[in-house]
Design a protein around this nucleic acid. Structure first.
Lengths: 145, 145
DNA sequence: CCAATATAAATGCAACTGCATCTATAGGTG
DNA sequence: CACCTATAGATGCAGTTGCATTTATATTGG
């Protein structure tokens, strides 16, 4: 069918490799501090941002780009760890709402210190502000439906 | 410790999200044609590039950025599928060499058609050649050790 | 040559993921 | 209301991954 240009292939390889290496770097930093993974961080952050109201799992899965069952089980683990709480939902008897606990907030903050540090050395170090903006622009142009 | 600039955080989010979505898109295309995953493709390609000599698993794991046990098991599965062959290594009794079979070559080519197509719509479509080059440049600057 | 250490690869076990399905409630439509 | 379909969430099972360890061979230093 289609034959990609050499530039396309190079861009794809570069994107794949660098994003994987960066993610690994961040995950390694977290693990080195005996902290949970990026997935937990993202989840805690979204839930924290939802505030007192909490957030429904089906909303969460859209924001986190996770499959439904993945979200269900991830929330289960985070719940077991005491970082969030589940509350029955008044408007919808099928579902519920999750809220962050103070332990959750605390852990998220702790993770952020490590995470932020990794981002500084991994992204902010090698790139200028202009390049960072350029990257955002390219990524947004590329984002599929 | 360090406080990332807003641009850093945005760039990180954009990079994470877009790369995930693109990978998903490619994986979905492959799955929709009942073909194996990207990991298999990359592995087959590396092994095919190694040619008649074949390649040692420990080399492969470096190129594929996979952990040792992951490589070991992935090769096991690909072997079972008859896409590669294992040959004892003369110079090193601990290890062996893998070579692609003709079925392997055939499957890789088939996968490439689908893969290439996804790259064309996913990357080449939204970006110009100049932007693709820019992306390579940014990714290379960013690549961690 | 031997002992100590390093490297290649495999594997047992527990945790995690994907797929398909299941349960329960919600929201229509006649 | 009775029925049909759609959506929220959970879960059984098989396959995969991660971690730690094991096995086997290679390499180095005495």
């Amino acid at each position: 069918m289609s034959v990609p240009k050499i530039e396309t292939i190079e861009a794809w390889k570069a994107l794949l490799t660098t994003s994987r290496l960066l993610i690994e770097k961040v995950e390694d930093s977290l693990a080195a501090s005996s902290l949970p993974s990026l997935a937990w961080y993202d989840t805690l952050l979204e839930i924290e941002k939802a505030g007192k109201e909490g957030i429904r799992p089906y909303k969460l899965k859209e924001r986190l780009l996770l499959p439904q069952y993945g979200t269900s089980r991830l929330l289960g683990r985070i719940l077991t760890a005491g970082l969030i709480e589940k509350h029955d939902c008044d408007e919808d008897g099928r579902g519920f709402v999750v809220r962050i606990t103070s332990r959750g907030r605390q852990l998220r903050r702790k993770m952020w210190r490590v995470y932020a540090n990794a981002l500084c050395t991994g992204l902010e170090g090698p790139l200028t502000v202009g390049e960072l903006k350029l990257l955002v622009d390219l990524m947004q142009k590329t984002r599929p439906a």
